[in-house]
Computed example of a mutant assay.
Amino acid sequence: MKPEKISYVYVTYIRSTPEKVFEAITRPEIARRYWGHENVSDWKPGSPWQHVRASDERPVELVGQVVEIAPPTRLVITWAGASQAADPEAYSRVAFDIVPYEDMVRLTVTHDELTAGSGMAKGIQQGWPIVLSSLKSLLETGEGIDVFAKPKAA
């Protein structure tokens, strides 16, 4: 029996343009400013994609493939931990949908095909909200937030 697959959907509204949001996701030098990582690819369907920590060591943390790309409104990639790259069952999928919404955009991130209870499912459940908050902050104020911050003890 195959493990149960789950999905998460995150929606945020950003005072920006679809073009700027799309660039922030796909351009390494912008992603580094709000994510602490660079998304590296040539962004063509079927091309590899890597999520690289923005440091001198530049270790690859996540890998995948570009499934679909329609700038500036849609990007779909596969997603797996670099240590699990050889396991086809380890891959999940992320879709970024960017829709103009009056003087802003609605960004919907759908992360699906996740194995229920996996470390990846737990990690993205905590990670996406802070990453998307940082993206919003960067595009609206020019400064991202610390995505590596930890809650303060009460």
Rank of each mutant, 00 (worst) to 15 (best):
V66R: 05
V76C: 05
Q84C: 03
E4G: 03
W43S: 00
G144T: 01
V9Y: 07
Y34F: 15
Y10D: 01
P100S: 00
D97A: 04
S16Q: 08
T108G: 02
W79I: 00
P3A: 15
E23T: 15
D97H: 11
W79H: 11
K44G: 01
P71M: 05
T141G: 03
E89I: 02
A24Y: 05
E143F: 10
L75Q: 09
E113I: 12
V99K: 13
R15M: 10
G127K: 12
V109K: 08
S55R: 11
D103F: 09
P45K: 14
P59Y: 10
A80D: 08
K5E: 12
K44Y: 05
T110P: 00
D56Q: 13
S83M: 09
E29R: 01
A85D: 12
V52E: 07
A153S: 09
A153H: 12
L107Q: 07
Y101G: 05
L138T: 06
D103Q: 13
A54K: 08
G123Q: 02
Q126G: 13
A154M: 09
I124H: 05
Q65A: 08
T73D: 08
V60D: 03
S55T: 01
P129M: 14
S55G: 12
T12L: 11
I145N: 08
Q50G: 08
V99P: 10
E68D: 12
S55F: 02
E143K: 13
F148P: 10
P151V: 00
M1C: 10
P71Y: 08
P71N: 07
V76R: 09
K20L: 10
E89Y: 13
R93Y: 04
P151M: 02
A153M: 06
S7Q: 14
V67E: 14
P88S: 02
V76Y: 06
